[in-house]
């Protein structure tokens, strides 16, 4: 008797159930309490915000969970502040030895990155099973320092390669329970995206400069006025076209190539929607003096999550927990202060 051995595939959409009014109240109370407590509450605020977004993300009718501990975050922040304070004090008092701090930071940087990713992963769970991150500092140094240096040496030619390696490093070292994720996006796919973007930026630069010189020769007006006249549209084109394109195509490329134990992710963002949401979000936030920022964040998250699904061919029941230790939030907080983006 001939039977189809591969189990039937099932598409499980991610759902996002957060809503703007509810989040607005959480957001404003968070800010207010952080102000009143002179910033101390902000660690709790950070955890509540993360919890809100995790818990409102559902897959197969189960929500994700964020378990970060605010006290760990406060400790991490204290260490980060102490380090930054010491380094700026040294710069003032003993400029000769201030470079030591830079060297320490440079050496510690890969380690901090890995700690950050581990902190975030281990404090994320789904179905009472934690995620994990197993990347090493050496592995991070190879990508974030080694390849980054090569990017500099080749005046950016290797940048798409660098991007592919960073995403690969994050994805392949991430695990759900004991099962690691796989990452299949090829370097050439990254080049395909960035070549278009580089070409568009170059074209924009050339057109802008040509018009700029034409105008500044024909009309004897001040450079500043013409500069604004030309460069405002250039920046606008960038915001309206290039940046949403990059966002859409990178997000889709990365997520469509992530899989775990034969379950594939699928992301179907479209350029038009991403452009519309990001531009209208910018205007909404500006015109509302920031009050619509929570709405904008919910709206963007909802769009991103609702367009993500898991194409599953095995039941989600058989992932197994790993033995994990707790991680301190020091890396997270230092990396946060330097505003380094390590998201996928």
């Amino acid at each position: 008797m001939e039977q189809d051995l591969s189990p039937p595939t099932k598409t499980l959409p991610f759902q996002f159930t957060g809503n703007a009014v509810e989040y607005f109240k959480i957001w404003i109370v968070n800010i207010c309490l952080s102000i009143i407590t002179l910033g101390i509450y902000s660690a709790w605020a950070k955890v509540r915000t993360k919890r809100y977004f995790y818990s409102n993300t559902l897959l197969d009718n189960t929500s994700f969970e964020y378990t970060g501990n605010p006290v760990a975050i406060v400790k991490g922040r204290l260490i980060a502040v102490a380090f930054l304070g010491a380094s700026s004090l040294a710069q003032r008092l003993y400029p000769e030895i201030a470079f030591v701090f830079t060297v320490i930071l440079l050496i510690a940087f890969p380690w901090l990155l890995v700690r950050t990713m581990r902190f975030n992963a281990r404090n994320s769970s789904y179905r009472n099973l934690r995620f994990n991150f197993t990347g090493t500092a050496i592995g991070a140094a190879k990508v974030y320092i080694g390849i980054a240096l090569l990017v500099g040496l080749t005046v950016g030619l290797l940048f798409p390669f660098f991007m592919q390696r960073t995403k690969k490093f994050i994805a392949e070292n991430s695990a759900y329970g004991t099962t690691t994720f796989d990452f299949a996006a090829l370097v050439k796919s990254f080049y395909a995206i960035y070549l278009k973007v580089f070409a568009a930026i170059a074209l924009l630069g050339i057109v802008g400069s040509v018009i700029f010189f034409q105008l500044s020769h024909s009309a004897m007006k001040t450079g500043a006025a013409i500069g604004l006249l030309v460069w405002i549209p250039v920046v606008l084109v960038f915001v309206v076209l290039i940046s949403p394109y990059l966002r859409t195509s990178l997000q889709n490329l990365v997520w469509n190539n992530i899989s775990i134990a034969g379950n594939r992710m699928q992301s179907s963002l479209t350029f038009g929607r991403v452009a519309w949401i990001s531009i209208s979000n910018i205007f909404a936030v500006i015109l509302s003096v920031g009050l619509l920022a929570p709405w904008a964040k919910i709206r963007w998250t909802r769009y991103r999550i609702q367009n993500l699904s898991l194409i599953s061919n095995v039941a989600l029941d058989n992932f197994v927990a790993a033995e994990l230790q707790q991680v301190s939030a020091m890396g997270e907080e230092i990396v946060d202060m330097f505003d380094f983006d390590i998201a996928l």
Binding site: I31, S243, S278, N281, I282, V285, I286, G290, A293, A296, K297, W300, D341
Partner: peptide, 13 residues
């Protein structure tokens, strides 16, 4: 610091 984490949007705003 107040508007926070929607990086690109808030920077412009």
């Amino acid at each position: 610091a107040v508007v926070g984490d929607i990086a690109s949007t808030s920077a412009i705003a």
